[in-house]
Amino acid sequence: MIIYINDKPCEAEVGDLLLHAAQRHNSHIGCICGGNGICQSCFVYIKEGAESLSQPSEEEKAFISEKLFQDGGRLACQTVITGAGTIKVLSRAENLRRIVIGLNVPGFITYAQTIGYNVLNKLPGGAANVVSRVMEGKLNPADSIGKIGNSIGYGARLAVHTATENLPILQIPLSVISGAAKGVFDTASGLVCTVSGGQLHLPGSTCSSHETQQTKPVESITITVK
């Protein structure tokens, strides 16, 4: 089946976590804690298809306010696809980006108020939930650190992939980029040569007006290291 994350089509199957479906297709959803359910970086808005998803977990209830639940808020690392259907998801970062680009001032004010309320009212309960899971052995600190490390690696790969997709220059072979850079450097050296009357050149560069001439050093210096 195909689901849509930030309007990007992603293949998914019943039983998949929303977070994993997004990661397989480089569709950005935050994952600072690596899927441990101890932060809200993977917070998303379910725009369509809530009936095809699992019910909110205890971890989600600990971190998400009722107001955000009403707006379709979920944690992608806890939300499982339970049935076929049209599912459309918007990450928190993408939602905010659209508000800002659209110059939606009322929307931004509402967004800030809702998030601020959620942080103030749910942070204590979220922290208590994390401590409780650690005490009960449901959350292993060593395993959590490993997952966080994996999420950092994934974030780095996603950043490179996104930059490559959006900056065409990064798709040019490195040798071509290096050659172009050297050409610019040599041109700059020629300009320095002209301004200085042939006395100065940039190190490591060539100058078209002098590259065929044999130049002698102005002065030789011997350096002895004791």
Rank of each mutant, 00 (worst) to 15 (best):
S209V: 13
G73A: 05
L200W: 01
G49M: 05
S189T: 09
G73L: 06
A12Q: 08
F185S: 13
H201E: 14
G37D: 09
F63Q: 14
Y154L: 08
I148G: 13
I87A: 05
A128G: 05
P168L: 12
I64N: 05
V160F: 07
K226S: 12
I5Y: 01
L167S: 05
P168M: 06
V44L: 04
E58C: 00
Q55P: 00
S175I: 13
S178T: 14
Q55I: 07
E66T: 14
K182Y: 04
M135N: 08
V89R: 01
G34I: 06
C193H: 11
C193N: 14
P106C: 08
I145T: 10
G34E: 11
A180H: 03
I115T: 11
T82N: 04
P203C: 02
C193R: 09
G125R: 09
A93Y: 01
C10L: 07
G149F: 06
A112L: 12
R92D: 11
L170P: 15
H210Q: 13
M135R: 14
I5G: 05
C193I: 00
N166T: 15
A163D: 08
L202R: 03
E219S: 09
I38Q: 13
L68R: 15
I221E: 02
Y154D: 14
G83K: 10
G72T: 11
E219P: 06
H210F: 04
H25W: 06
Q40S: 14
E11T: 10
S65E: 03
C31Q: 09
L103G: 02
H161D: 11
C33F: 01
E48H: 09
T224W: 00
S209K: 08
S209H: 04
S151M: 03
G35M: 08
K122P: 11
V44D: 01
G198Y: 00
I2S: 06
L200I: 15
L174C: 00
I177K: 07
C31A: 15
L120I: 12
F185M: 12
R74A: 05
L200Y: 06
V80Q: 09
A128M: 11
K47R: 15
P124I: 01
V14R: 12
G34P: 11
C31S: 15
K216R: 12
P217D: 00
S189G: 08
G153K: 13
Q214V: 15
L103D: 07
G116V: 04
G83T: 06
I115H: 04
C207N: 15
C39W: 01
R74V: 07
G35V: 09
G198D: 06
A76Y: 02
V130F: 01
V89N: 02
L18A: 01
V80R: 15
C33K: 03
D7M: 08
I2L: 12
A127D: 01
S178M: 12
C10D: 08
G73Y: 04
S57Y: 04
S209G: 07
A76Q: 04
